Simulated scan of single mutants.
Amino acid sequence: MPIVTLPFVELVDRFGPVPDGVELDVWDVEAPHARPDEVAVTLLPFYFAGRHRWQYVHDLPELQLLQLPSAGYEHALPHAPGHAQVANGRGIHDDETAELAVGLALTSLREIAAFQTDRAAGVWDARVTRSLADRRVTVVGYGAIGAAIATRFEAMRCDVTVVARTAREQDGRQVHAFGELPTLAASTDVLVLITPLTDETERLVDADLLAALPDGALVVNVARGRVVDTDALVAELQRGRLSAALDVTEPEPLSAGHPLWATPNTVLTPHVGGNTDLSVPRTLELMRRQVTALAEGRPFENVVHA
């Protein structure tokens, strides 16, 4: 009987009925599975690291699908077994991450964090801040999360431009190519990063691109820290020319004494874009569909490597 493994008891308890001929099992990939020859689908834990764990995955000869709970998959492909398909968590974190992107922008522009510091100090300073409405927002990365982010900024009455690896028409929007970024940057008030981390996007936002942004522009990163040249960003922040609102950094977590702990005009959250109370139910929705596909012999969803 094919086994589908989930990393936590809670997920198995909340899963509900499974198709005939499929068994659910709890496996956190901290030790070899007791019945490796029967495991067909494995959902990795939400935070997964350690080469010894990957060996346990490789030891599953009948594994058909390795399911990631994250939209990003660059961390898994080099270690995934060649005989299994790999699927990402596309659709799980769209709303969560889009909410945070807008929230980070508002926190920075409306100085929400600074007002809380004033509160702690007993200071009442009703100063003028910047509105998000009417800002020119460039969203870099136009997958499912990028589209969700663009829609939300449009709802905030922003002028939104979207950018991806290739230029195209999609969802009624003109998608610009990465090569157009230097030109687009010159008229960008808020640069939002949600592109996957690839060889092409590593340090896509380098010193030259940051320099092309106008004075006072805001960089919002909900993608991966390595999409940005951190040293170049720190230099711009220390000069006070740009602002940043970051959910991801390089390195991550930040080391003690790293400049980003103290740069001005900076809002920082600890990579929580996909970490809300929606994560578990959305993950279960996807896994139920994957289990049904397994039982019915249909293709799996979200396959990024076959």
Rank of each mutant, 00 (worst) to 15 (best):
R203N: 07
L204C: 06
L204D: 06
V205T: 12
D206T: 08
D206I: 09
D206N: 15
A207N: 02
D208E: 11
D208N: 08
D208G: 15
L210H: 02
L210T: 11
A211H: 03
A212N: 13
L213E: 02
D215S: 07
G216P: 12
L218K: 05
V219A: 05
V222A: 10
A223I: 09
A223Q: 13
G225D: 12
V227F: 08
V227S: 12
V228D: 00
D229A: 14
T230W: 14
D231I: 14
D231A: 15
D231R: 13
L233T: 14
V234Q: 06
A235S: 03
A235D: 08
E236A: 10
E236H: 01
E236F: 11
L237M: 01
L237C: 03
R239Y: 13
R239F: 14
R239V: 13
G240L: 10
G240K: 12
R241F: 12
L242M: 04
S243R: 04
A244F: 01
A245N: 04
A245V: 14
L246M: 10
D247S: 12
V248D: 05
V248S: 02
T249P: 10
T249F: 01
T249K: 08
T249N: 04
P251W: 00
P251H: 07
P251F: 10
P251G: 02
P251V: 09
E252V: 07
E252Y: 12
L254P: 09
L254G: 01
S255Q: 09
S255C: 10
A256N: 01
A256Y: 03
A256L: 09
G257V: 05
P259Y: 03
P259Q: 08
L260P: 02
W261K: 08
W261F: 00
W261H: 02
A262C: 13
A262K: 01
P264L: 06
P264E: 09
N265W: 08
N265L: 00
T266V: 07
T266Q: 03
T266G: 03
V267R: 00
L268T: 11
L268V: 04
L268I: 10
L268N: 01
P270A: 06
P270R: 04
H271V: 05
V272Y: 05
G274T: 15
N275L: 13
N275S: 13
T276P: 01
D277N: 15
L278H: 07
S279N: 14
S279P: 05
V280T: 14
V280K: 01
V280L: 10
R282K: 15
T283H: 15
T283L: 12
L284T: 15
E285K: 14
E285N: 07
L286F: 14
M287V: 15
R289I: 13
Q290L: 02
Q290I: 08
V291W: 02
T292L: 11
A293M: 13
L294S: 00
L294M: 04
